Amino acid sequence: MSDQAKETLLEFPCRFPVKVMGARHDEFAQTIHNITLKHAPDFVSADLDMRVSKNGNYLAVTVTITAVSKAQLDALYMELTGHPMVKIVF
């Protein structure tokens, strides 16, 4: 068994959704798009979905990428969680 297989149950490449929540802000979705594109250069806008919270205060953005490695996903999660506009990533 390879080291990569020991670290994750995912088989790469695979489609992988990442949900990002933050305060509703005009630039939020574009910021998430740009960060995602850095880590998944083949990411397309059609794979981005947005939903506004019930009271309109928050925005949930789901980006679905073709993940090629655990390292890629880890780097994407690290950059997203470190961004000041982002409240939670799952």
Rank of each mutant, 00 (worst) to 15 (best):
52 V>Q: 07
66 T>E: 14
87 K>D: 06
42 D>Q: 06
81 T>I: 11
45 S>T: 13
1 M>F: 15
30 Q>K: 06
35 I>L: 00
85 M>D: 02
46 A>E: 06
19 K>A: 05
8 T>N: 10
47 D>E: 12
35 I>H: 04
12 F>N: 05
60 A>C: 10
15 R>Y: 14
38 K>P: 00
11 E>P: 03
33 H>G: 01
77 Y>W: 12
40 A>W: 14
56 G>V: 05
31 T>A: 00
60 A>N: 10
52 V>D: 12
35 I>R: 00
69 S>Q: 15
33 H>W: 10
11 E>Y: 15
13 P>H: 13
9 L>H: 12
53 S>K: 05
54 K>G: 03
41 P>A: 03
12 F>Q: 06
53 S>R: 07
5 A>D: 14
41 P>S: 06
90 F>N: 01
45 S>C: 06
69 S>D: 15
29 A>I: 10
37 L>Q: 08
52 V>W: 14
39 H>Y: 14
2 S>F: 15
78 M>C: 01
70 K>F: 14
36 T>Q: 01
48 L>M: 11
27 E>V: 03
62 T>S: 04
53 S>F: 13
49 D>S: 00
26 D>E: 10
16 F>N: 01
67 A>T: 15
54 K>M: 07
30 Q>S: 06
21 M>G: 05
45 S>K: 12
77 Y>R: 03
76 L>W: 13
87 K>F: 11
26 D>G: 04
71 A>I: 14
37 L>A: 05
78 M>W: 11
52 V>R: 03
6 K>E: 14
70 K>T: 09
14 C>M: 10
37 L>D: 05
80 L>G: 03
50 M>H: 05
5 A>R: 13
63 V>K: 03
82 G>F: 13
74 D>E: 15
10 L>R: 11
61 V>H: 02
50 M>F: 11
83 H>R: 05
31 T>F: 12
23 A>E: 12
78 M>V: 10
79 E>D: 08
1 M>D: 12
55 N>T: 09
